[in-house]
């Protein structure tokens, strides 16, 4: 069986909000090291990979490997019923057909319990090789989210061009064009505000802004984001 408790429900709320528009149904693969998810969107263009390590829960108990088939739209609705600061406990029994969630307010005067029916999910797990990327860009995640949103007014596509001292995001459409250039700024106080460009060779690649806007929803999870690019290899964010 699985039993895992998170001190703040907000962590799972943010994760589900970031994933729910890309992934309809997927398995939470649970074992004694934690809870993992690998899922593609329905058009097989985008892959979400997530690992919640056992150390992030207290307590965490998983006796044997189990795959919990989750409908993310349902889980997202249930997670909206949790307060950000609530304790969250998730449980699934042996051969369980439900995932149980319990939200407990900080002073324990309100306890909510929900069961979500589990599904059989056929998982297409991809074998992704280690890649040495031509360019790696680190920047504040809020900045990345804003760039994707701003350039969406011009085009459905963005071209990301990384050169030695800058990265340029370019969008060009029927009504005009726009570009945003971000330069490295390593002398900042806050690590999350840092911008770095690590380059093996210059790259220039185009991507659908629809997917980048989906990925940018995960910016609430971390202060900084890393973009890794190479010719003929999917962008890793």
């Amino acid at each position: 069986m699985l039993e895992a408790r998170l001190p703040s429900a907000v962590t799972l709320k943010k994760i589900i909000d970031a994933v729910k528009e890309l992934v309809q149904d997927a398995n939470f693969d649970c074992n004694d090291s934690g809870i993992a998810l690998q899922a593609m969107d329905s058009s097989h263009v985008a892959l979400v990979a997530l690992l919640m390590r056992a150390e992030g829960f207290d307590p965490y108990r998983c006796d044997r490997n189990i795959a919990l088939g989750i409908n993310f739209a349902t889980l997202a609705k249930v997670m909206k019923c949790a307060g950000n600061d609530d304790n969250l406990t998730i449980k699934a029994g042996e051969d369980a057909d439900v995932l149980s969630l319990m939200f407990e307010s900080t002073n324990s005067d309100r306890i909510s319990e929900f069961d979500i029916k589990l599904m059989d999910v056929d998982a297409d797990h991809l074998g992704i090789p280690e890649t040495d990327y031509s360019a790696t860009i680190k920047m504040p995640s809020a900045e990345f989210q804003r760039i994707c949103r701003d350039l969406s007014v011009m085009s459905e596509t963005v071209t990301i061009e990384a050169v030695k001292d800058a990265v340029k995001f370019i969008a060009s459409g029927d009504t005009g064009s726009g570009s945003i250039t971000v330069k490295p700024n390593q002398a900042v106080d806050k690590k999350d505000m840092e911008v770095t460009v690590t380059l093996q060779e210059p790259v220039k690649l185009a991507f659908s802004l629809k997917y980048l806007n989906h990925f940018a929803k995960a910016s609430t999870l971390a202060g900084s984001v890393t973009l890794s690019l190479s010719d003929d290899v999917p962008l890793m964010i």
Binding site: S43, L126, G127, I128, P129, T157, S208, V233, P234
Partner: peptide, 14 residues
């Protein structure tokens, strides 16, 4: 604009 390629174009099943 260019169409995004399926990930199966790059990565095989595990």
């Amino acid at each position: 604009g260019p169409k995004q390629q399926s990930l199966f174009t790059y990565f095989g099943p595990r």
